[in-house]
Amino acid sequence: MSVLVVTGTSTDVGKTVATAALAANAVAAGLRVAVCKPAQTGVADDGPGDLQEIRRLVGDSVRLVELARYPDPLAPDTAARRSGRRLLELDEVVDAVRALDAGYDLTLVEGAGGLLVRLGVGGFTLADVAATLVAPAVVVVAAGLGTLNHTALTVAALHSAGVACRGVIIGSWPAAPTLAERCNLDDLPAVAGVPVLGRIPAGSGALDAARFAVRVSEWLGSPLRTKRLAGDASVVL
C-alpha cells in the first residue's frame, strides 16, 4: 500500500488535473486507487468539486473521499470559521487516509491551495499530514515567471517538515512556451533539487476520460511510475 501527497506552489496551478493524471496512470497499471481531498472550498454543498472533476477525467474505478466542504473560496480554516462549520482535525485526516491505504494500492491526497495553507484546528497544513503519514509528495508548479522561487520554497518547506519530495509536475504547459517557460523547464531541477516528472498540456482538463487516459503516459511516463513515486521500491521504471 502507498500514499502520495499532491501539493502545489499555489492555487490554480493544476493540482486537480495532475492528481487525475496520477490516478489514471496508476489505474492503467492495474492498481486500485483512492483519492482523498481533505477540504474543498469555494463550492456549494450540492455543487461539483475537485473530486467530481477527477471522476469525470478518470472514471468510476477510483474511490473518492472528501472530508469537509466550505462555500467561501478561502483557506479551509478561514472558510470554516466564516461558515460556522467545524474545522478539520489532523488526526481525522490522517485516520481517513490510513483507512483508504489499508484497502487500496495507491492513495492520493490532494491539498487545497499551496503547501502551507491552514486546513483546520491548530493551523495544521498538508505538510503536517504528509509528515504524520510518512508519505512522500509531488509538487504541481506553474510554467512561467516566478515558478523557480515558488517551487524552491515549497520543496524546502517539505524537506524542513521531513517530507520527501519525489519531484515536480508542470500543471499547465503551454502549446507555445515563451523563453521564460523553456528556460524554467531546464532550470527547475537545479533550483529545486528534484526532477521534473512531467508536463501536462494546458487545456487537458477539457478532455474526455477516454482521451485523457490515452494521453497520460505521454505526460507522466510509464503507468507503473506513479506507484514508484509513492515509494514502492518493487516497481522498476
Rank of each mutant, 00 (worst) to 15 (best):
G123V: 00
L51Q: 06
R81E: 07
S222R: 13
A176S: 14
A75M: 00
G49P: 10
L197D: 09
A29M: 09
D91N: 06
N184F: 10
N25G: 15
L158F: 11
G203P: 13
G146F: 08
S83T: 01
A156W: 00
L229N: 05
A164R: 11
R182E: 15
V196F: 07
L57I: 12
G84Q: 00
Q40S: 06
V129K: 02
S234Y: 06
G123T: 00
A135I: 14
A79M: 03
D128T: 00
W173D: 02
V191F: 09
S217V: 14
R211Y: 12
G146L: 04
R81N: 02
S61F: 00
T151M: 01
V62K: 04
L220P: 06
R228M: 10
E218D: 15
G113Q: 03
A21S: 11
L179M: 14
A152I: 05
L74W: 06
L31N: 06
L31H: 11
G84I: 07
A131L: 11
V35Q: 05
C36R: 06
S10N: 15
V191K: 00
R182S: 14
R69F: 13
W219A: 13
R118L: 05
A190W: 02
A233F: 09
T78F: 09
L119F: 03
V27T: 14
A192R: 02
R215Y: 12
T16E: 13
V97W: 08
D46P: 00
P174Y: 14
P71R: 00
A75C: 00
L148E: 00
A156F: 04
G171R: 03
A142S: 14
A209N: 07
T7R: 01
G203Q: 14
V139Y: 09
G198S: 08
R228T: 03
E89A: 07
D72M: 12
A34H: 07
G203F: 14
G144N: 01
V139I: 15
L4A: 09
V62M: 06
V138M: 08
V139Q: 08
G198M: 08
G120L: 00
A18P: 07
P71V: 11
G205N: 09
A39M: 07
A213Q: 13
S10E: 14
T147C: 06
I169D: 03
V196T: 10
R228S: 09
L64S: 02
R56F: 14
G162M: 03
L108V: 08
T9M: 11
L57K: 13
G171T: 10
L197F: 13
R32T: 15
G84F: 04
A39G: 08
V65T: 15
K37W: 12
L158D: 05
L229D: 08
L188T: 01
Q40P: 10
G114L: 03
D186Y: 01
I169S: 06
M1W: 03
V35T: 08
A127N: 02
Q52K: 04
A175Y: 06
